[in-house]
């Protein structure tokens, strides 16, 4: 029986893969099938795909320039001709600003997702696997970071480094890594004492190989889940910094900064703050739903069947 005679689906679901690539693709396909079975996760994924699409094609989608002010046309309500979501205090089109704002949101999310979990993974697995003094020192440092209120620490960093989106990302990452380190360490402790780690140690493998090739693959899946669940918090933290005027600077259309600007008019012109608020809510929810679905797919314990 060769793979040519089979449909792609059968080939992917085959129980007897013929090569490494085949085995990997089959595992990924089965994961996708599980994820597809989870409707809430698919809704989350769809929202994120829309967000990415919006960010990519912002210039094509936005009806107006997000920075052009039209003072004669300020504070227009929803459904105004040419400005579906109305205009803000300076007469800028809210929809266009939100569309461009998605770029900033994605940029923040991607950067934080690159920095914090990787730092946490490194610290946590090394600490958990090495044990002894290394563990004590690394974990006390982690505790110190954890003990500070997150936003206050971020504020301190931004105050020291200066306001701006890059510094906001850095500040959020610096405050976001300790929980990942804690989690990676806890997982490493259970993985470390398992038979398959003993088995590879009995083949003479060193700690570097064990951590990178045997422990990381098992920690990464739960980290990915945790990151997607934390995305909401990260977006809100970025929005919070923007709201306090320490994140994105005007006239940048960052969603948090937009809420901050709209705050003054919340009673008379509620849509200015509400529309970007809804966007933050939708994206946060999407990441949460996707994270929940990913947890089912990535959990190695029930990857059977």
């Amino acid at each position: 029986m060769t793979s040519q005679n089979l449909s792609t689906r059968e080939w992917l679901l085959s129980d007897t893969p013929e090569s490494r690539r085949h085995a990997r693709l089959a595992a990924m396909y089965k994961g996708w099938l599980t994820l597809r079975g989870n409707h809430m996760a698919m809704i989350g994924l769809a929202i994120i795909v829309v967000l990415v699409g919006t960010a990519l094609f912002a210039p094509l989608l936005a009806p107006h320039d997000p920075f052009v002010q039209e003072l004669g046309n300020r504070l227009q309500p929803l459904g105004t001709e040419g400005h579906i979501l109305g205009t803000d205090t300076l007469g800028r089109d809210i929809l266009s600003r939100m569309i461009y704002g998605s770029r900033i949101t994605l940029y923040i999310v991607a950067l934080v997702a690159m920095i914090a979990p990787i730092a946490g993974l490194l610290v946590g697995t090394v600490s958990g696997y090495a044990g002894g003094w290394t563990d004590i020192i690394l974990m006390r440092i982690t505790d110190i970071f954890l003990a500070f209120p997150r936003l206050v620490l971020a504020l301190a960093f931004v105050a020291a480094l200066g306001a701006g989106i890059e510094n906001a990302v850095l500040a959020i990452s610096l405050t976001a890594w300790p929980p990942y380190a804690r989690m990676a360490r806890a997982e490493t402790l259970t993985i470390r004492s398992s038979d398959y780690i003993s088995a590879i140690r009995l083949q003479g493998a060193g700690p570097l190989r064990i951590i990178t090739k045997h422990i990381w693959p098992l920690c990464i899946s739960s980290l990915i889940v945790r990151v997607t669940l934390d995305m909401a918090g990260i977006i809100l933290a970025a929005a919070g910094l923007g709201f306090l005027g320490l994140g994105a600077q005007p006239p940048s259309p960052e969603w948090g900064a937009m809420i901050s600007e709209g705050r003054r008019f919340i009673l008379d012109h509620w849509w200015i703050a509400t529309m970007p608020g809804l966007a933050i809510f939708a994206v946060s929810l999407a990441f949460n739903l996707l994270g929940d679905g990913l947890r089912d797919v990535l959990d190695p314990k029930d990857s059977a069947s």
Partner: peptide, 9 residues
Amino acid sequence: YASLHPRHS
């Protein structure tokens, strides 16, 4: 069930 790495073929 415990002596093989769950993610390694």
